[in-house]
Amino acid sequence: MTLKWSDTSGIFPSAAPAMQQHPCYGAACRALGAEVLNLSFGRGTAPLATAQVVLRRWPLLGRFALVTRGPVWSEQFPPADRHTALHALVDQLAQRFTGVILTPDRDQGRDLLEGRGLLRMMSPFHLAEIDLTGPHSARRAALDQKWRNRLNRAEASGLQVKITRLPADPQHWLLRAEAAQSRQRRYSRLPPSFSVAWETATPGGTRLFSLYQAGRPIAGILVLLHAPTATYHIGWTGPEGRHVSAHNLLMWQAGCWLAERGYTGFDLGVLDTETTPGLARFKLGAGAKPVHLSSTWMRAPGTAMVARLGAAWSQHWGAVSPGPNGWPGRMS
């Protein structure tokens, strides 16, 4: 087998990819002016693996290749050969760009880059995902009791969930409200323009679930569609919405809407029980299960030596436990 990844276009993963490896994500990034590479391993229109690579230039450093939650492996690709193919991808990208940053999905419980001479930038973390393949009754029964009680109260309020596409308006009320919320709570996220770019690049690729009271919005969430799964992207709830447990109702209705249309999974994002324990409880209460991801790794000039020194330090002194967000912090 020739260990070579080829530049491709129009060849999509044969397996269900994560959002960052889906063609819709690449289209949104391109709409914002980013350069995106699509690589495949193997010949023909049904490759053994695909990788979507976003290129980013950092001042004084140069161009870096970012591979998030990839590659996507075909079931026909023997698991024993995947680590070799992944390292071939790292080698090829390192020849073309200043550095490579990867956060691959775990493969059969393994981090394929562990112990391979790359510099660990961030320790492994978890995502929260809801399985939408079961019947409605089973998904309702999987809710935490307190979470379900809040949902019952929200349903009894008589408020109706409005479901629409996100208008191509960067000043939409949900985008403005969530931007203000992120500044207040000091968390990072993709810019509002990304939401608009997703809908613009893939018309019909967003769904806005919102609640109104007396003609004013009191809560809303935005879901990005990338069949066969979807991702909770942003959300906001005002004081009136919190009073009626609006977010519980919106989350449940979004899951039902997706399941009715054949979506198999609903990604709720990072599950951080240390920094945001309340949010983590909310996601788990909604029926989500933890999904363990790999570390974030870097290959760039000088990082191999740092990685070797770090390995030697750990062997001599013992591994140092990272903070809740790893070191040097999550990249957004």
Score class of each variant (00 low, 15 high):
residue 287 G to P: 09
residue 320 V to Y: 02
residue 52 Q to L: 15
residue 188 S to G: 04
residue 73 W to K: 01
residue 143 L to Y: 14
residue 15 A to T: 13
residue 228 P to F: 07
residue 264 T to I: 12
residue 310 G to M: 11
residue 110 R to N: 09
residue 114 E to V: 03
residue 46 A to D: 00
residue 209 F to T: 04
residue 193 S to L: 09
residue 166 L to I: 12
residue 301 P to E: 03
residue 320 V to W: 04
residue 252 W to T: 08
residue 34 A to P: 00
residue 208 L to F: 09
residue 62 G to D: 05
residue 120 R to K: 07
residue 82 R to P: 00
residue 54 V to G: 01
residue 226 H to A: 15
residue 18 A to D: 11
residue 112 L to S: 05
residue 245 S to F: 13
residue 205 G to A: 07
residue 245 S to E: 08
residue 172 H to D: 15
residue 189 R to I: 12
residue 274 E to G: 00
residue 283 K to D: 13
residue 295 S to N: 14
residue 300 A to F: 04
residue 200 T to W: 00
residue 219 A to Q: 09
residue 76 Q to F: 06
residue 121 M to S: 08
residue 230 A to D: 06
residue 296 T to C: 13
residue 142 A to V: 03
residue 300 A to W: 02
residue 11 I to Y: 02
residue 123 S to Q: 12
residue 310 G to V: 01
residue 37 L to F: 07
residue 226 H to K: 08
residue 172 H to Q: 09
residue 52 Q to Y: 10
residue 222 L to E: 12
residue 308 R to V: 00
residue 224 L to I: 14
residue 7 D to W: 04
residue 45 T to C: 01
residue 127 L to Q: 06
residue 177 A to F: 08
residue 52 Q to E: 11
residue 235 G to Q: 04
residue 246 A to W: 06
residue 10 G to L: 08
residue 222 L to N: 11
residue 38 N to T: 14
residue 171 Q to G: 10
residue 140 R to H: 12
residue 198 W to C: 11
residue 164 T to K: 02
residue 320 V to S: 06
residue 192 P to H: 12
residue 298 M to V: 14
residue 250 L to I: 06
residue 161 V to I: 02
residue 133 T to C: 08
residue 301 P to F: 07
residue 24 C to K: 04
residue 298 M to E: 14
residue 159 L to N: 10
residue 176 R to P: 01
residue 278 G to R: 10
residue 151 L to T: 12
residue 255 G to N: 07
residue 56 R to I: 07
residue 268 L to P: 10
residue 171 Q to N: 13
residue 271 L to P: 07
residue 16 A to M: 08
residue 210 S to W: 12
residue 208 L to K: 06
residue 138 A to N: 04
residue 233 H to V: 11
residue 265 G to N: 03
residue 18 A to I: 09
residue 230 A to H: 05
residue 28 A to D: 03
residue 8 T to L: 02
residue 206 T to E: 05
residue 19 M to P: 00
residue 244 V to T: 14
residue 187 Y to F: 15
residue 71 P to S: 07
residue 298 M to T: 11
residue 67 V to L: 02
residue 168 A to Q: 11
residue 316 H to C: 08
residue 3 L to H: 05
residue 222 L to I: 14
residue 192 P to F: 11
residue 255 G to E: 05
residue 157 S to W: 02
residue 16 A to S: 13
residue 91 D to C: 03
residue 104 P to S: 12
residue 211 L to G: 14
residue 76 Q to C: 03
residue 61 L to H: 03
residue 274 E to N: 06
residue 153 R to K: 14
residue 100 V to T: 08
residue 252 W to A: 14
residue 252 W to Q: 11
residue 164 T to G: 01
residue 183 R to E: 15
residue 133 T to W: 01
residue 32 L to Y: 03
residue 239 P to A: 15
residue 22 H to V: 15
residue 25 Y to N: 10
residue 58 W to F: 15
residue 225 L to D: 05
residue 54 V to T: 12
residue 220 G to H: 12
residue 196 V to L: 00
residue 293 L to V: 09
residue 46 A to V: 08
residue 27 A to P: 02
residue 241 G to T: 05
residue 330 R to K: 12
residue 323 G to D: 14
residue 289 K to C: 06
residue 9 S to W: 02
residue 312 A to E: 06
residue 167 P to D: 07
residue 24 C to T: 13
residue 301 P to T: 04
residue 195 S to A: 15
residue 9 S to P: 00
residue 53 V to I: 15
residue 112 L to Y: 02
residue 26 G to S: 03
residue 262 G to P: 06
residue 278 G to N: 11
residue 280 A to S: 07
residue 54 V to H: 01
residue 216 R to E: 15
residue 79 P to E: 10
residue 114 E to A: 13
residue 98 T to W: 07
residue 260 E to T: 08
